[in-house]
Design a binder for these strands. Structure first.
Lengths: 250, 250
DNA sequence: CGGCGAGTTGATCATAGTCAAGATCTGTGG
DNA sequence: CCACAGATCTTGACTATGATCAACTCGCCG
């Protein structure tokens, strides 16, 4: 349909950096070509840039190619809740694609590179490429899974447990993407973003991180996290390590 | 495919009670027939019955025809977080359908009637009936939307605000389904279930409901909720009333 | 040098948790 | 019909977790 939008667009999905990663399922050449036809360009944003706003109905949907960001919602008086962290391979804009508008905002926490799709093509994707439609649901189910985990954490865990869980979960995701070492990672998020994710005040989050540091469990300082005692971290977070799984990519 | 499973099965989707409700989009006769072919039966459960368990990979997926229930997750020591309320028209088992297992449990809070699908047919649905696949994503996006709202509530609202928000949100959903009057509803959930949903202790939830009663805002007693001052409730909950929208149904 | 964003720390306060006892209601069996 | 047990809800007293306030450090950038 839109393969004829001209040769000069920055459409280079076959050079998609995600394809290199072992955690993603593979496309056939035909599928690859088909997906490329949906791509309408790439978007480069800097740290702090809004990507989609709550209540908006942007004409674009995105797949994250590089960088990390946050999904969040705010109350009128400014209180903010981070409802999710966004990493490469994540799909942004499902709600805008399928309902009319986004129910949360998305903002870049690092420099990000996004693959851009036209919202109007979204419906067509299900019709012409059912497997990709299925994958959209897969990603949605995964997002639902994360949200459930966060809700359990914020609703029922203590500050200590929450912070430990968040650290583990961030590291786990980054590690699966090859963006972290086994016991350390570059942390692109601020402590304020973490605080807003776990539902604590900035001050208390900082104090909790200090305790983790003093107890020799994990050390978050200077934009780096070192996990000194992974077993203890898991234990505090209260998770049983699940097995990794292959994921689709839109 | 499985239209030939025999004539005696309790498959009577055309008598589906949901079809009467104005909030649902309409099927063509052909689609209706197609969906019926996916149906593998009906399930009747009593209050308190588990429908799916966290970690399980039940061979069934469900659409709720009647009754209400809860989605929840638990920590090892028994702390429980209700991550969502289930009402007629909701789809249960997306995670089991696309990933391998459920990440949360589902339990009936009233007598419930469920439409049962085979998990193995789920993938086929996307292939043969793309519009229904799209609708699955619609429902997933909606669930994600609710989860985001709850997370904001539990993470950033005060006890008073949370309870008010939960009351409003429950009433709103029930009202849209024709299961509540304009200012009252039969409440099938217990205060413990509410407490576990808003992330408060049972005791504090009870005390908060008492305050709402004393202030003449809303009265939850004896399994009934009366909203005496809807405007005040909205104001406390901190929501701006959105417009209703037509929804799909699987 | 000054200002800003990010993080740290201690003191104090308030919100919500825990504990315990009792009130109600409901279904069940005698 | 009544007695009893269990589930649900209520209330008060006390406690603890985490919020708020305020001051200060540190690094970075213009």
């Amino acid at each position: 349909m839109n393969k004829s939008t001209g040769p000069a667009m920055r459409v280079r999905c076959s050079a998609c950096p995600l394809r290199k990663l072992s955690c993603f399922a593979e496309f056939s050449d035909a599928e690859e070509a088909f997906m490329s036809s949906f791509k309408s360009g790439e978007l480069d944003v800097d740290r702090g840039s809004p990507i989609v706003m709550e209540g908006s109905n942007s004409p674009h949907l995105f797949t994250v190619l590089e960088g990390m960001g946050i999904r969040y919602k705010t109350l009128e008086d400014g209180r903010r809740q981070v409802i999710g962290f966004i990493m490469p391979g994540d799909f942004v804009g499902l709600q805008a694609g399928v309902m009319d508008e986004m129910q949360h905002s998305v903002e870049a926490s690092t420099k990000m590179l996004l693959c851009v799709f036209r919202r109007t093509d979204f419906h067509q994707l299900f019709r012409d490429l059912p497997q990709r439609g299925y994958d959209v649901s897969w990603l949605a189910a995964r997002e639902e899974h994360f949200l459930g985990d966060y809700l359990l954490s914020v609703g029922r865990r203590s500050a200590m447990e929450r912070v430990a869980f968040a650290l583990w979960s961030l590291h786990r995701r980054a590690f699966d993407l090859g963006l972290a070492k086994a016991t350390s990672m570059d942390m692109p998020f601020t402590q304020l973003e973490l605080a807003d994710a776990v539902g604590l005040s900035l001050v208390h989050t900082s104090k909790t991180l200090k305790k983790l540091r003093e107890r020799g469990v994990a050390d978050w300082s200077d934009r780096k996290v070192m996990i000194s005692d992974p077993d203890r971290l898991l234990e505090i977070a209260g998770v049983d390590q699940p097995a990794p799984r292959l994921r689709p990519l839109i």
